[in-house]
Nucleic acid binder design. Structure first.
Lengths: 194, 194
DNA sequence: GCCTTATGAATGAACG
DNA sequence: CGTTCATTCATAAGGC
């Protein structure tokens, strides 16, 4: 299990960034023992081990269940919540950026302004603006606009069903804007309800 | 808007259909004043407001608690179950499509035929075929195939685990049958970033 | 009747 | 850019 620590020597990660991980900020020297990249590699390795452990538990469960069924016993409750899996998950999992409410609002507003493909200049600006409201990187912004555009354009070709419209003079029934994200715990800013 | 409350066991699927109208079911005429799409928009708005209300309650709770702690009082139990939140949730909750037995059989058979990703054309065809056996939309079919493929792949990893657990530290170096995706760009994307 | 599991849907990220 | 994959959330179905 110690083999992941050999990654530094094996792939010589320091060479990728060219620095050992120290920087001056506000007159104070901050020293990182690991580079971001090394952290990422470690994260992935932990995640991989977590997955394997999960699968081993699954296998063990299956085997045990089989043996128990042969013996007519029931001990199945032991694996209810594999501790190591969830804790490893916690450490290693966060891979996918999730926009905060604020960020979503701003992005959405910008998208609705209709200024087409954001240039990299704009993306930089947007990113720095959004970073005041939470972790974000330029690639996040880039991807978000790509996806937003693609999915609003996909818009599903609604023409498959006949439009038997009643007297519903719908407020904002915009047939070309069909992807306000599903809000799970985000307060996506209200579209007018009146 | 009368039909969402119908507990008759039918489910209107998501808002991709522009159908505005009325239908017979169990000898009763159901009339919708809103299209499914409008319903969906409204649902999301309500959900958003419910979330906002929840957060306001939280804030109020915090403020009140603070004030009470200053005054040495305890009135905290008032917010135990905010009525409006749960009822909004109820109204705003989305019902999801559930394939009928017939539909499942057909879908399963098609999946086992091994014809990879169904094209849009095929999806349309499949949808119209399945709609003879119950409510269904193209996005339902699309999602079903997506999920089916992804989950059948995930199941396979479990069965492949029996002899794979050795080379973990090489997970990004030798992606044999593992997923070669995941790059986790933080500072790199198609645009040049300094 | 709760709690677990299965699965439909939403979406960030990657690929060609 | 459009499409596909992977991950996650929410809910319907099912077990105890």
């Amino acid at each position: 299990m110690a083999s992941y620590s050999s990654g530094g020597g094996e792939r010589d990660d320091d060479a990728r960034e060219g620095r050992g991980g120290e920087e001056m900020r506000d007159g104070v020297l901050f020293v990182k023992v690991m580079t971001d990249e090394q952290m990422e590699i470690l994260r992935r390795q932990i995640a991989a081990y977590a997955t394997i452990c999960e699968q081993l538990v699954e296998m063990h469960k299956a085997i045990t269940a089989h043996r128990d069924s042969l013996a007519g016993m029931h001990l199945g409750g032991l694996y209810g919540d594999p501790l190591m899996a969830s804790s490893a998950q916690r450490i290693a999992a966060r891979q996918r950026w999730t926009p905060t409410t604020m960020q979503l609002q701003i992005l959405e507003a910008m998208f609705n302004e209709g200024n087409g493909t954001p240039t990299k200049q704009k993306i930089k600006q947007i990113t720095s603006e959004l970073s005041q409201h939470g972790q974000i990187s330029e690639s996040n912004v880039y991807n978000w606009f790509q996806n937003r555009r693609a999915r609003s354009k996909k818009k599903q070709t609604v023409s498959l069903t006949c439009n038997t419209e009643s007297e519903v003079e719908a407020d904002e029934d915009s047939p070309d804007e069909k992807k306000p994200r599903h809000s799970y715990h985000h307060e996506s800013m209200p579209l007018s309800i009146d």
